[in-house]
């Protein structure tokens, strides 16, 4: 039983460590001879004006990376935009950098992409509705499980040390005592019944 639990625990740990699948179909660089595209959603239409100051240099790179970590690469399996080398992810990262440079904060940028891609573009589910379960369930399970373990341990402790009657043999909580010794019935009633049955079978 213990081996089984150990195997399950190791398997779970190994699974959690497994890197996410590599992304992307083969992609080519866009042609340099085409006129630059202007698609775009003017961010102020979607998310208003920047919440913070424009960033540059190291702060820009850091914040870009931080926000990219929260966005899902749309063509990958569970990779963030920061980690993926897919062209879609690189294009998104460029757009994140553009928005960060203008001074937009993390939540604004997430909303910007959410407007086009939907909530799935966020790597972490929002803490609302059914998603509350995703966040709350592990904590709940831990608390409930710990509580159960504690109660079981206490109950087992109580069974091993009954409050009254030390006349009973200390082995009363253990399985079958050796037949020749116990002529007087042990204090544990269940055990007494069992013992009686065994003796009758063995007659």
């Amino acid at each position: 039983m213990r081996l089984l639990l150990l195997a399950v625990a190791l398997g779970g740990a190994a699974f959690a460590q497994a890197p996410a699948e590599a992304p992307a179909p083969p992609v080519e660089a866009p042609a340099a001879d085409a006129a630059p595209a202007r698609a775009a959603i003017d961010p102020s239409d979607l998310i208003g004006s920047p919440a913070g100051p424009p960033l540059t240099g190291a702060a820009l790179k850091e914040q870009t990376h931080a926000v990219s970590k929260l966005l899902r690469c749309p063509v990958c399996q569970g990779l963030s935009v920061a980690d993926s080398r897919a062209e879609s992810a690189l294009a998104m990262k460029a757009e994140v950098e553009d928005l960060v440079a203008q001074g937009y904060d993390t939540e604004q940028i997430l909303l910007y992409f959410e407007a086009s891609y939907g909530e799935f573009i966020r790597l972490e589910p929002k803490f609302e509705g059914v998603n509350v379960l995703v966040w709350a369930a592990p904590v709940l399970l831990l608390v409930v499980g710990a509580g159960w373990v504690l109660l079981s341990v206490r109950a087992a402790g109580r069974r091993a040390n009954p409050g009254s009657g030390s006349a009973a043999a200390p082995t009363s909580a253990n399985p079958v005592p050796t037949a020749p010794k116990a002529d007087a019935p042990p204090a544990d009633a269940e055990l007494a019944t069992y013992l009686r049955r065994v003796r009758e079978e063995n007659k």
């Binding site: 595209a37 063509v75 998104m92 460029a94 086009s116």
Partner: peptide, 16 residues
């Protein structure tokens, strides 16, 4: 039309 830099794709939320 050629979408340079995937900008239109991002604006339209293209997943693939």
């Amino acid at each position: 039309l050629l979408d340079v830099g995937s900008k239109a794709a991002i604006a339209y939320g293209v997943y693939g």
